[in-house]
């Protein structure tokens, strides 16, 4: 589903990704682990199409299509979803109104029929219940005054609502206590599906106790330097990034 070959990405004048290779098949959950500054967030932004993250070399192919050539909204309509590390606060736009606008924008782009307010509310309510997202939260301005846990739960709610084909979770575990972490992991696990691929980006092994990946890639200095099965996470935890990166070299 996702094929990244020799990817080089510049942010401003600085090269952050320096020849990254990654292959992710439908039905698989892969984890990207790496120390701070290794390029994890850059990878997530470049996959979602953020302006200012320039591909200088290499390709990102998604279902046979050149992903790098598409606008962020076109990627969303084609099933790419990025759960962000820092969801933005947007005063003046209620969460419910945002969800309706986004869902209908995606449906419109795919040539599907738009849903009315009641139709959207019905779906949202049903998905929100399992994530402990209250009606009251949906009425508030998007992410404004939300706790860290509430913001991340809302990201997962959107993921359930949009039903993406490729879901990228950028440090979704950061700032979560253990209860919130379990809730988020349950949400992610409920979306595991043979037709869906997921890329879980994290600094810590902890999240991978709850979302067990099929494969782990270690990202350091803009490249994948080590790969392995789920046991690699334990090894990283025991030895630390420095040692694993040294071993790989």
């Amino acid at each position: 589903m996702l094929e990244i070959k020799n990817l080089h990405v510049k942010v401003g004048d600085k090269e952050i990704l320096k020849g990254l290779n990654l292959s992710l098949a439908a039905g698989q959950v892969h984890a990207i682990m790496g120390p701070n500054g290794s390029g994890k967030s850059t990878l997530s932004y470049v996959l979602a199409g953020r302006a200012g993250y320039d591909i200088t070399q290499g390709t990102i192919t998604y279902n046979g299509e050149d992903l790098g050539a598409l606008a962020p909204e076109a990627r969303a309509a084609k099933g790419v979803f990025l759960a962000m590390q820092y969801p933005v606060e947007i005063p003046g736009v209620t969460t419910m109104m945002f969800l309706k606008s986004a869902l209908n924008a995606q449906r419109r782009a795919r040539g599907e029929k738009e849903l009315d307010a009641i139709g959207v509310l019905k779906i949202v309510r049903q998905k929100a219940a399992t994530l402990n997202v209250s009606e009251e939260m949906l009425k508030r301005a998007l992410n404004v005054g939300f706790s860290g846990g509430e913001k991340k739960r809302l990201e997962i709610l959107q993921m359930k609502l949009f039903e993406p084909k490729l879901a990228i979770l950028d440090e979704t575990d950061s700032g979560l206590d253990i209860d919130a972490l379990k809730l988020v992991a349950e949400g992610v696990n409920s979306l595991r599906d043979p037709s869906r691929a997921m890329l879980v980006i994290t600094h810590y092994q902890r999240l991978l106790d709850y979302i067990v990946p099929d494969r782990i890639h270690v990202l350091a200095k803009g490249k994948i330097v080590a790969e392995g099965g789920k046991e690699l996470a334990k090894e990283l935890e025991a030895k630390g990034y420095d040692q694993i990166i040294k071993d790989a070299a």
């Binding site: 979602a48 199409g49 953020r50 302006a51 606008a71 962020p72 909204e73 990627r75 969303a76 309509a77 990025l82 962000m84 820092y86 969801p87 933005v88 947007i90 945002f98 606008s101 986004a102 869902l103 924008a105 995606q106 782009a109 959107q158 949009f162």
Partner: peptide
């Protein structure tokens, strides 16, 4: 710019 990107990444056109 963060808000614009967030909304576009969720499917809204520019």
């Amino acid at each position: 710019a963060d808000s614009l990107f967030y909304l576009r990444a969720r499917g809204l056109s520019e």
